[in-house]
Amino acid sequence: MDERSDLELIKEFKEGKEQAFNQLVLRYQERIYWVVRRLISDHDQADDIVQDVFVKAYHALKSFKGDSSFYTWVYRIAVNLSLNEIRRRKVHRTFSIDESDFQYESDEAHPLEKLEKEERAQLIKKAIECLPEKQKKVFVLRYYEELPYEEIAKILKTSVGGLKANYFHAVRKIGAYLKHEM
């Protein structure tokens, strides 16, 4: 495990040590992947966006001033690129859920129980996709990433009070959707 701080790695990268950037990617790739995947749903598209996030970070890192933490900064890139993709999808009317996206750990659950879980997962995905953009990103960062509201506020550049209200309404809407559909 590399013990250098993010700022140390960024400093080394700015001095020309390319390896330092690899370390930053390794440190945040999983978290960034899951944020994007929650927002985008599809693995292949998420993979494409994750690569773009780090490519963008690579080029912008040279001018990174350290006003916010690296991970807040890179999360912001990830959320913005994911939302761009969602908007692009809406424009092209390709908003669909692919059955093949759902691959679960093989377990010993009864086939009917498994099917029920998969159906529930599908419904949750649909419910999340139906959320307004702002509520969607707040929900993903709060529920799945378990980030504190203060951190989400830095990433999304918004107030904590507003975020809490957004999160509340997001979960309420997901609940209403599930109740209606189940």
Partner: peptide
Amino acid sequence: DALNTLRSVPEENV
């Protein structure tokens, strides 16, 4: 109820 349902669904694979 929504949070219970969310928790009941396993993580997707990578």
